[in-house]
Design a protein around this nucleic acid. Sequence first.
DNA 1: AAGACGAAAGTGGTTGA
DNA 2: TCAACAACTTTCGTCTT
Length: 309
Amino acid sequence: MRKKAEIEEIRKCPECGSLHVVQDYERGELVCEECGLVIDDSYIDQGPEWRAFDSEQRERRARTGPPIDYTSTDKGLSTVIGWRNKDVHGKSIPTRNRAQLYRLRKWQRRIRFGGVSERSITSALSELNKVSSSMTLPRNVREVAAMIYKKAAEKNLIRGRSMEAMAAATIYAACRQCGMPHTLDEISVASGVNRKEIGRTYRFLSRELALKLMPTSSQDYVERFCSLLSLSVDTKTKALEILRQAEEKELTSGRGPTGVAAAAIYIASVICGERRTQREIADVAGVTEVTIRNRYKELAEKLDLDIVL
DNA sequence: AAGACGAAAGTGGTTGA
DNA sequence: TCAACAACTTTCGTCTT
């Protein structure tokens, strides 16, 4: 039974209109509790692949083989038939069985690369990889991106749209989902798709797939900006502290998160004696010095910081 | 000379009629 | 669909270190 199902999201069931739609993690399904309709049978589960209740159990759950890999079309779980005419023991396979082996290889090729949709996904995934590696994104972000792309493909959202834009939007969404947002501009540079189009496609995607992503927090940018500016951990911590206070006093709402982050980093760099120029910070944050000035004036005014400027 | 400051005009995106 | 609007940018002259 679905004992571990939790009400995570209130959505209307298209069949009976009931609001009791639950995620069933064990089966990876989105199910209506009233009428039992399976709304989505490959719901994106953001949790781990399995549950462990203590460390000992965690050890025992270790599996063989590579983790499920969404960046390859067969989820990395396929068996590949070797080209050598040898069996598992290394013995040569008799000629009368060779024909069978050839047939197997042929079918495998057809299954892996055969269908038109499969092939288009394959090339999309390679685009995804190209862009994300030029941005040096960590593996988990790439996998989330690949997963989102696949969902989009399943829902036929790709047709009539450019694959590049789709891939770029997917990466943008994946970055945000993983709490390491990148600006549309950065992704635009890496993918060669213009910013407007990525934004449009992204909005479309998030509406159609109900990605329900929170608006980006300025704090998520601090890690990356600080390391680009080669600032110390102290400064980074200070910047985060400033942002936390700013959030409390609602100085961040309505403001561009990158600008606020940049201002906080500027202040932190001054306080911690690692001053960076406004220009330098503006460059990595993708905002102008003027914006940094405006934000940091606001912050300095309302946050009673001990700054001597 | 470089960086910081701020005024003023311009731009792109959202909102509400 | 259009105008109003706030945030942000661009540009440029002035002040500070």
